[in-house]
Design a protein around this nucleic acid. Structure first.
Length: 614
DNA sequence: AAAAAAG
């Protein structure tokens, strides 16, 4: 047991050793020879204990001492969140079991510190501080929840017992208090409830679903993973995202949160050699972060089984369920061996949630809670949105003007980061080339580039080496790039939700940002939605855009599904209006935020709230 | 129509 493994695998393996120890079949280490006999159930207090009575501690690198689990053993294969529900007092009196102080044995020492050098964390902290969240910007965020028995939000991390190891990582991240999405999501998730959440990325969403998952895995009943094949691994949590870079980002964050908790996070995505990912998986996995294509590949090779999944989280869930992705997601969630809704716990997140997608998504959920957190950093005052009328043929020179102006007020010789969105991959390449030959260091990211090139481009942009990144929609969602000062919609998207996601790459974590859009007659279909959105976020709407909007407003398509200050509203409200169980938590003086919206779908639940397709 | 995601 020299390599790092997840604690659950360790326990499962030693359980198997227990079973085979006295038999004639015990000739090889588990995981290297032919599949051992299927392990019988081993009570938690006996797990991880060699057949002989040597002391167990040395070989165990899990987060919880063996005895800590003794109260949990129902023997159920799904020792999952549903069981957690009634454990309101859990954790109390067993605090000593958390974190495994003194238990950092050989295996644990090899865990790379994702925060940087342990003894010199200053640098890491400064780095984190720069990308830190501006909490003041969150004070007035409106929050809306609906569903049955919604657990009340928490105001501090201390109120919830996430475990000492996790708390320490929260401190390392300098998270002082939870963001609105965290305040609501954490208690909902700890209560074992399913969740559909509308919240801007950059509002602390990743932490919001990672904390309860990590905490739940740490304290959950030690799962006994079946040993179907020695090379099959059984993650307990699955986090899916639509792009490779976003999966990488989630993985990096989750690694910080799970540092020294014994919870193992592994990432798998396409475009990279699969062998290395397979090796990582073999070393044990509790939380698997993946893109759909690579995961399907792993499932078909039977290298991953979803049989033990307790937690499923879909990031950018609306994107994951749109036409391109839906079949793959259904295959993963419904047609493989994942436990059904109600058995597993499912959490869906996105900044936008069109109602037709909500309807699809409800297939994956069981008695879920809908949570909408007012947009932060996107479509609020934090991002200044400008729209300029630019003919197709003038776009390049106009961009040049913007970049020149920006260079003039660059900070300390470093040019502010500018993210330029274009419609096509070819367009991205040609614009990048043109910028470069005109003296603007630019790079590009899109799906025709190799994964190495994509990652290199992102690094080079983040570091300021090439302060201009030309991107397709691959970079539109979820990517957290600190210090993006300016998002240029060189080509506007056809879908207003895509626009929302794109401009959300600036104004991250409550900071301010600028978004400029080049609009021309080709974008007429977006005019209405764009004008409405800008109006809702107190932006100046040019008169010419309003005229376009009035002209193209007949279509009805592209109308924002939720409207108002949220990326969406619970579609269940549409069919049954005065359904009970809804609550409104105005964060502080949030009510004021409701006043300004026009057009009848600002904040009320009245008949003005209609969906785009009913 | 384009983009993404498996090779």
């Amino acid at each position: 047991m020299s390599t790092r493994t997840s604690w659950a695998d360790l326990a499962a393996n030693s359980a198997a050793e227990n079973v085979t120890a006295g038999s004639s079949a015990s000739n090889g280490a588990v995981g290297t020879t032919s599949a051992p006999a299927r392990a019988a159930y081993v009570p938690p207090h006996l797990r991880n204990r060699p057949a002989s009575s040597e002391p167990p501690a040395a070989a165990y690198n899990g987060p919880i001492s063996n005895n800590d689990r003794s109260g949990y053993g129902s023997g159920s294969r799904w020792g999952g969140p549903r069981n957690d529900y009634n454990r309101s007092g859990y954790g109390g009196g067993r605090a000593g079991g958390w974190g495994g102080r003194g238990g950092w044995d050989r295996g644990r020492e090899r865990e790379v510190n994702p925060f940087g050098d342990d003894d010199d964390t200053e640098q890491a902290f400064n780095e984190l501080e720069n990308s830190g969240i501006n909490f003041d910007a969150y004070e007035d965020i409106p929050v809306e929840t609906s569903g049955d028995n919604v657990p009340p939000p928490v105001n501090t991390f201390a109120e919830v017992d996430l475990g000492e190891a996790l708390n320490q990582n929260i401190r390392r991240c300098k998270y002082v208090k939870p963001t609105p999405v965290q305040r609501h999501t954490i208690p909902i998730s700890l209560a074992g409830r399913d969740l559909m959440a509308c919240a801007q990325t950059g509002s602390g969403k990743t932490a919001a679903f990672c904390f309860p998952i990590i905490s739940g895995i740490m304290r959950g009943q030690c799962p006994q993973r079946p040993l179907r094949g020695a090379r099959t691994v059984y993650p307990l949590a699955l986090i899916l995202s639509p792009t490779r870079e976003l999966s990488m980002q989630i993985h990096e964050e989750a690694r910080k949160f799970s540092y020294q908790t014994g919870v193992k996070v592994v990432v798998a995505y396409g475009g990279a050699p699969i062998n290395q990912q397979l090796r990582e998986l073999e070393r044990g996995v509790d939380i698997l972060v993946a893109t759909p294509g690579r995961l399907v590949d792993l499932l078909e090779r039977a290298r991953v089984s979803l049989q033990m999944i307790r937690y499923l989280a879909l990031d950018e869930a609306d994107r994951m369920l749109d036409m391109g992705f839906e079949p793959q997601i259904r295959k993963i969630v419904e047609q493989m061996d994942m436990p059904p809704p109600g058995v597993r716990q499912t959490m869906l997140f996105s900044a936008t949630f069109p109602k037709e997608i909500q309807r699809l998504a409800s297939d994956f959920l069981s008695n879920y809670i809908f949570l909408a957190v007012g947009r932060v950093g996107s479509s609020t005052d934090l991002i200044v949105q400008r729209v300029e009328f630019v003919h197709e043929s003038d776009k390049r020179s106009h961009l040049m003007d913007l970049l020149h102006a920006q260079r003039a007020n660059g900070v300390q010789g470093k040019q502010a980061l500018t993210l330029v969105f274009v419609e096509t991959k070819k367009g991205a390449d040609s614009l990048e080339h043109w910028l470069c030959i005109n003296g603007f260091p630019a790079t590009t990211i899109h799906g025709d580039r190799s994964q190495q090139e994509r990652e290199q481009a992102l690094r080079s942009f983040k570091s300021g080496n090439t302060p201009i990144l030309v991107a397709t929609d691959v970079a539109a969602r979820g990517l957290d790039i600190p210090h993006v000062a300016h998002v240029v919609n060189f080509d506007l998207p056809n879908d207003i939700d895509d626009y929302v996601h794109r401009i959300g790459r600036t104004g991250r974590a409550g900071k301010s940002g600028l978004a400029t859009a080049f609009f021309n007659e080709n974008n007429a279909s977006l005019a209405k939605a764009l004008a409405d959105l800008m109006q809702e976020s107190n932006q100046e709407v040019p008169a010419w855009l309003s005229r376009y909007a009035a002209r193209s407003s007949f279509g009805g398509r592209n109308r924002r599904s939720g409207g108002g200050r949220f990326g969406g509203r619970d579609f269940r409200r549409d069919s049954s209006f005065s359904r009970g169980g809804s609550d409104y938590y105005g964060g502080g003086s949030g009510n004021a935020a409701y006043g300004g919206a026009s057009g009848g779908h600002g904040g009320g639940y009245g008949p003005g709230v209609t969906s785009a397709w009913d």
